[in-house]
Amino acid sequence: MSETPKIRLRGLRKAFGEKQVLDGVDLEVRARHSMVLLGGSGSGKSVTVKCILGLIPPDEGVIEIDGQDVAKLSRRDRAALLDRTGMLFQNGALFDSLPVWENVCFKLLAQRRITRRAARDRAAEVLAQVGLAASVGDLSPAELSGGMQKRVALARAIAAQPDIIFFDEPTTGLDPIMGAVIDGLIVDCVERLGATAFSITHDMASARRIGDDAAMIHKGRIVWTGSAEALGHTGHPMVDQFANGSREGPIQMELRR
């Protein structure tokens, strides 16, 4: 008997006005595996993640986590579910008004699971895990470089030891070396926590580095799922065109003149 998927999406649909962003998304994410969702800009990647996290209500469809339909959970159970997740936002989304150490331990402090003194120590520990010195904890997010902000955001995502972590374009805006560093940290952190990872990206190198499984979304539908290693030579014309960055193929850019 196969293991229950950590996350299962069935017939997920979401429209914004006239635009149908998700048009029946079906996807399964295996527990303790890293799934990478690929797709072009505006294909529905971020909306899929926001629906799973409850930031946007879907119009139709079912979202199951550990076999439980999220929509049928009580408010308390849904909050408990959210407690077990972490999220790294595309631009970091660090809180400007707080120093780095408070950003890192925000969830633990907000839930009063830790004192402020202990939070400083915990922040130093987690910052070390993402390759940052404890002294960074006293800086404000505005004083950090893009790469450091991503590392702090990663530290914040893992500080409460979640068992599902979402990564939204983790390498966007970083140079290739820093991108590889962040990918390495993501792989390390996910392995150390034994967590399930769900990443969205259009960076092929990053997808191959951090993913076990991959799926491609196009015009709001999953058009392919398979191994992340196979990206670039899947035999699926749409995926191979996207992975190889080719202008010729079934995906045509919609240009506005």
Binding site: L53, L55, L82, M87, F89, A93, F95, F106, A110
Partner: peptide, 20 residues
């Protein structure tokens, strides 16, 4: 300005994902 900036830079969504 502060809350608006938080809204457009996903900080408000980040609060939700941090159980707040």
């Amino acid at each position: 300005a502060e809350i608006g900036t938080m809204r457009v830079t996903d900080q408000i969504d980040a609060l939700t994902t941090l159980s707040t």
